[in-house]
């Protein structure tokens, strides 16, 4: 069954968003996108030489006819991120921007102050901002106050494969922002991480390294697609509450020998 849904102003058909970096080859990138059937594909901008390497990459992505989400990856300052977003809008012809303002080299943790400043500027310029953020509740509120309808907290540092480092904080965000679109962005390593994010009610997950660096990226892309669907279906189905004691799943009523007196034959 198709799960059409809307993120921002875009209608898409998958809750898995896939990055395009670090694949062993263009053919493997293509096979991975085919296996994942992602709702959004993330892309970036880099300096171009006259040889036009970027054009060949873009030809592959265009062929899928899947909406793209340009990013401001590796931007460390507000002005740099805003200029990059403007260049991305012209090239990719979309107002969507995955806003990254990095504050720390070691963890690639977002600079939350720069993120807020850049968000404010980009929203004024008409962008639909997808902020790459930590799982901080107050930061989320500030971003919402600025006009963000989509929040993208990290599960763990980019490329770490650690999964959902702070499930408590991530659940808090879901509970406190029931009407906002929440996407786990970064840090996932295994399909079970994606499924766990969906089971707690996140709207989508965005990942790249877990697929691109897998032994078989295309197979892993398919595994993530299945996990995202399983997690979403589980969330919608209503997961049972945990309890401390056992409850027999087989009915006890009319069980043979039930309550038979010891020694009564």
């Amino acid at each position: 069954m198709s799960d059409k849904w809307q993120i921002g102003k875009t209608e898409i058909s998958s809750r898995l968003f896939l990055g395009t970096a670090s694949y062993p080859s263009p053919d493997i990138l293509r096979a991975s996108i085919e296996a994942a059937q992602p709702g959004l594909i993330t892309v970036s901008l880099r300096r171009e030489n006259a040889a036009g390497k970027g054009q060949a990459f873009w030809d592959i992505i265009k062929g899928f006819n899947i909406p793209v989400l340009p990013n401001t990856a590796s931007c460390y300052g507000v002005d740099e991120a805003v200029t990059t977003a403007q260049m991305a809008r012209e090239i990719f012809e979309t107002n969507r921007i995955k806003l990254e303002v990095i504050g720390d080299d070691y963890t690639l943790q977002p600079d939350i102050y720069g993120l807020l400043e850049a968000t404010q500027k980009l929203i004024k310029l008409g962008f639909e901002v997808y902020p790459y953020m930590t799982d901080d509740l107050v930061l989320a509120q500030r971003l919402v106050d600025l006009g963000c309808n989509i929040l993208m907290p990290w599960g763990a540092p980019i490329g770490s494969g650690r999964g959902l480092n702070n499930i408590y904080a991530l659940k808090q965000l879901r509970e406190r922002f029931p009407d906002k679109t929440l996407v786990i962005d970064a840090g996932l390593g295994a399909p079970s991480h994606a499924s766990a994010a969906m089971e707690i009610g996140y709207d989508a997950v965005l990942l790249n390294t877990a697929v691109a660096k897998a032994g078989d990226p295309a197979m892993m892309a398919g595994a993530f697609a299945g996990a995202v669907k399983a997690g979403r279906d589980a969330y919608l189905s209503g997961i049972i509450a945990k309890q401390d004691s056992a409850t027999p799943s087989t009915p006890l009523l009319d069980k043979p020998f039930w309550h038979q007196e010891k020694g009564s034959g």
Binding site: G19, V43, S44, L45, Q55, F57, P70, T84, T209
Partner: peptide, 10 residues
């Protein structure tokens, strides 16, 4: 002057 083009990104 900076000149940029589409590139892979996560």
């Amino acid at each position: 002057v900076e000149i940029v083009a589409p590139m892979q990104g996560g």
